[in-house]
Design a protein around this nucleic acid. Structure first.
Lengths: 332, 332
DNA sequence: CTGAAAGCGCTTACAG
DNA sequence: CTGAAAGCGCTTACAG
């Protein structure tokens, strides 16, 4: 910019005016500046501009895994809203590791993103307190944050999980397995609670051996599914006749495991899958709307940037039971 | 930082040394600085640091749609490599719109990202010339760039598309429909070329009415599929007995359309889908490896940042035919 | 309509 | 071991 000013024989501020299309520059001068800009191939450095301005026109998004369908659909919603606000999006994955979440979130803070959207991996977000104290806006998605007062946008797990479980019960199932991811993850815990609630409401006992939580790799989930379906001999639990799978990766792994087994338990999954309707039977799910989740959280974030100082809100988005066949199979 | 220096009664540079854990600060002084940092809640502004340093420790990624499974898996690969290099990732979607691609890419350039990864939407990337001239590294993914000399990492369309088509021919099909997205998109054009090549190699004529390209929304693809399968009366083309669907969204939409039809054509899709193995019949595909695509492109980008000045390379990643049933159905 | 000075929050290059 | 000065590339606040 200094070079442009020198080349055009004008002051720095005049170049700035032309670059920013501010009014009050004589046409002759503007033309001279534009010529110099073209000749030198000048392009304004926005990082420098934003340093002076105070904002960074960017938001950070900490996901579980940028490549997961749930996360990426959520990102699409966030990106759309960020775009509307002229903001660029930093995206990164925590891989469900609290240290990585923290590291990533703080790196984003150090860049002074205007706002931060976090799908929590860890159970304590107190590390963000100094950041919010100095003006950072934070919104949690999919799971609430802890150790800090901030907005959260979640799916209605407390409504969806009982609805899915009750659907299986309504189709005659009394022994229903719950397959979830790590039990300390908020969504897993909430959905498990919902499962128990629906069983209780129906007056059905829950055998703790029907509950399988853990890593979501196909091998682990496969073992869990086989166990749930074959327990029974030697005084162990009776096999379940239906499965409630608590998220997209668990459902996928469970379906893969079932493909290799003779048993045809009923299945209701939490989260929709891309080809769910084309399976036979079609996969009955409790669908979330990850794109709206992302949009809603981003809107809330920008409201906060716009000096909305009302108390932190918790928004719950409805889930929707989509009946396609797998959840209506009768008990074996 | 100035405040910290004042509070600790030291010079600015000493604070900088402590913050950056540089050696050569007396323990007493360091302790005093650290106390001031804690008290004031000081956190270094990386944007300011990077302005001075010259790099931004960030890369930009311009995708077609951050929420698409192909794009997001690709992002996962890019992110992993960026992380290894201590870089943050800006991600954005072009929505297959050349203007948005350009706008997004230039916004990223204005932020002075160290490198740019672009899945081209437009057919001319000459607008990046001034950027690369001043040191920006650019790598194209999935499709080559145009109007600029730069690296490109692609899937082997020229090998994969004929392989998929030949697979259908080997199972007895002579009238095979090609369903693709917009014909000007490089991958669509290449795959169509591969389809024609395989048909030619087998000595089979191609009726132009067997080729359907256009938007990938379910309605449009559905119409195309129905037309391909029912043409025949009143002197029009004979219906096809098999479909080669040229990417993930087209395949998905085609399968949805087929679910509502009596016909059971053989299908081979380009791109794998999450539940492909669980359909009945299983979906035979020519699989790409989007994560490796992303990783490879990001590695190439960082090589370039490391002053690798060899001539631009074009890397082609192999595709893999995965046989699952739908591609082996005999002609009706 | 135009521009010189100060400053955004850091680091670099240098001197003590 | 320590720090004052200059500068990264811009904008803000002000004066003419």
């Amino acid at each position: 910019m200094k070079d442009v000013a020198a080349a055009a024989g004008v002051g720095l501020k005049t170049v700035s005016r032309v670059v920013n299309e501010e009014s009050g520059v004589s046409p002759a001068m503007a033309a001279r500046v534009r010529a110099a800009i073209a000749e030198l191939g000048f392009r304004r450095n926005d990082s420098a501009r934003l340093l002076r301005t105070g904002s960074t026109a960017s938001v950070g998004l900490v996901l579980e895994d940028i490549g997961d369908p749930f996360s990426s659909t959520l990102s699409r919603g966030v990106e759309a809203v960020a775009r509307e606000h002229g903001c660029l999006l930093f995206a990164g994955s925590s891989a469900e590791d609290p240290d990585r979440e923290r590291e990533l979130a703080l790196a984003l803070c150090a860049r002074r993103v205007d706002g931060l959207l976090v799908v929590p991996a860890g159970g304590d977000h107190g590390y963000l307190l100094p950041e919010t104290a100095s003006g950072l806006a934070v919104v949690f998605l999919d799971r609430p944050g802890a150790g800090i007062e901030a907005d959260a946008v979640l799916s209605d797990n407390a409504g969806g999980a009982p609805a899915g479980t009750a659907h299986l019960i309504a189709h005659g199932h009394r022994r229903i397995g719950f397959v979830g991811d790590l039990p300390h993850i908020h969504t897993c815990a909430e959905r498990l609670r919902g499962y128990r609630e629906a069983m209780g409401t129906a007056g059905l006992p829950v055998d703790e051996r029907w509950i399988a939580t853990g890593p979501t790799d196909p091998a682990t989930v496969g073992r869990a599914v086989r166990r749930l379906l074959t327990d029974g001999p030697d005084g162990r639990a009776e096999p379940v006749t239906a499965l409630f799978t608590a998220n997209n990766r668990v459902t996928l792994a469970a379906l893969q495991a079932l493909a290799g087994l003779p048993a045809r338990p009923a299945v209701v999954g939490f989260d929709d899958l891309e080809l769910a309707a084309l399976l036979s039977p079609g996969l009955t799910v409790v669908a979330q709307d990850p794109e709206t989740l992302g949009r809603t959280a981003a809107r809330l974030l920008f409201d906060r940037l716009g000096r909305d100082t009302s108390p932190p809100r918790r928004v719950e988005l409805p889930t929707r039971l989509i009946v396609r066949g797998s959840g209506e199979l009768p008990p074996a």
